[in-house]
Amino acid sequence: MAVVTAVGLVAAVGAAAVHVLIFWMESIAWEGPLARRAFGGTPEEARPHAFYAYNQGFYNLFLAVEALLGVALVVLGAGSAFRAGTALVLYGTGSMVAAALVLGLCSPAHRGAALKQGALPALAIICLCAGLLPA
């Protein structure tokens, strides 16, 4: 496996970890201190939005699972498993980048959060695509 591909896979795992953390904050600990520091407001202000955050958290979890499953297939597989894993990683991280772009474009106040959300998946995409290029 090329070094650039390995870097891409590590970045994908990092991106998945960030999205699992976001899932935890949105779906499990929405009114807790970590989520309130990340998203602002008080627990009382957050409470009316808990249902929406719960749902949104699962979107983040599903993207993380998709990317992690893809990484596992790439690392453990060859041939069609490698190709399927690469497709899963690229689709999962591509969706993460798209969500970060939407956040950054729709809310200038959240561009920093969008950058944090999108940097690792963008690095994963760049490295994985570079690794797919013929030598």
Results as ranks from 00 to 15, higher is better:
Val75Pro: 12
Ala35Thr: 11
Ala67Glu: 08
Gln56His: 12
Ser27Lys: 09
Arg47His: 11
Gly57Leu: 02
Ala29Gly: 11
Gly32His: 11
Ala64Tyr: 03
Phe62Glu: 02
Glu44Arg: 09
Ala38Met: 15
Met25Asn: 08
Trp24Thr: 11
Val75Glu: 02
Asn60Phe: 13
Glu66Tyr: 04
Ile22Met: 05
Met25Ser: 05
Ala38His: 15
Glu26Gly: 00
Ala67Trp: 05
Gly57Ser: 08
Ala38Thr: 15
Tyr59Thr: 14
Ala72Arg: 12
Leu34Glu: 14
Gly40Ser: 06
Leu68Asp: 00
Ser27Ile: 06
Leu61Val: 06
Tyr52Met: 10
Phe62Leu: 10
Ala53Val: 04
Tyr54Ala: 13
Arg36Met: 12
Glu31Val: 01
Leu61His: 07
Leu76Pro: 00
Ile28Lys: 09
Asn60Arg: 10
Val71Tyr: 09
Pro43Tyr: 01
Pro33Val: 10
Arg37Tyr: 02
Glu45Leu: 11
Val75Arg: 10
Glu26Lys: 11
Arg36Gly: 08
Glu26Trp: 00
Pro43Asn: 06
Phe51Arg: 12
Ile28Leu: 15
His49Glu: 09
Tyr52Lys: 04
Ala64Trp: 02
Arg36Asp: 13
Thr42Ile: 07
Val65Arg: 05
Gln56Asp: 03
Val74Ser: 06
Ala35Val: 04
Leu69Ala: 14
Val75Ala: 15
Ala64Glu: 01
Ala46Cys: 03
Ala67Pro: 10
Asn55Gln: 14
Leu68Met: 13
Met25Arg: 10
Thr42His: 03
Val75Gly: 05
Pro48Lys: 03
Tyr59Asp: 01
Ala72Glu: 01
Glu44Phe: 07
Leu34Val: 15
Phe23Val: 02
Ala53Trp: 12
Ala35Cys: 11
Leu21His: 03
Arg47Glu: 14
His49Cys: 04
Leu76Trp: 04
Leu69Tyr: 09
Glu45Val: 05
Ala50Pro: 00
Tyr59Met: 09
Gly40Cys: 11
Pro43Asp: 03
Glu44Tyr: 08
Trp30Val: 06
Tyr54Met: 14
Ala72Asn: 04
Pro48Gly: 07
Leu61Ser: 10
Glu44Asn: 08
Gly32Pro: 02
Ile22Ala: 12
Leu73Gly: 10
Arg47Ser: 06
Ala38Lys: 06
Val75His: 08
Leu76Ile: 00
Gln56Asn: 07
Pro48Gln: 01
Leu73Arg: 05
Glu66Ile: 13
Gln56Ser: 04
Leu34Met: 14
Leu69Thr: 15
Met25Pro: 02
Ser27Phe: 11
Ala72Gly: 09
Ser27Ala: 15
Leu21Lys: 03
Glu44Pro: 07
Leu76Arg: 05
Tyr54Cys: 09
Glu26Asp: 09
Phe58Cys: 00
Tyr54His: 12
Gln56Gly: 03
Leu61Asn: 08
Gly41Met: 07
Ala53Thr: 04
Ala64Asn: 02
Phe51Cys: 01
Trp24His: 10
Ala53Tyr: 12
Ala46Tyr: 00
Asn60Asp: 08
Ile22Ser: 05
Pro33Lys: 14
Ala29His: 12
Trp30His: 10
Phe62Met: 11
Ala53His: 11
Gly40Ile: 07
Glu26Tyr: 01
Pro48Ala: 03
Tyr54Phe: 12
Gly57Cys: 06
Phe39Gly: 05
Ile28Ala: 14
Leu21Glu: 03
Phe23Pro: 02
Gly41Tyr: 02
Pro43Ser: 04
Arg47Tyr: 04
Leu61Ile: 01
Pro33Asn: 09
Arg47Leu: 09
Leu21Trp: 10
Pro48Met: 03
Pro33Ile: 06
Leu76His: 02
Tyr59Trp: 14
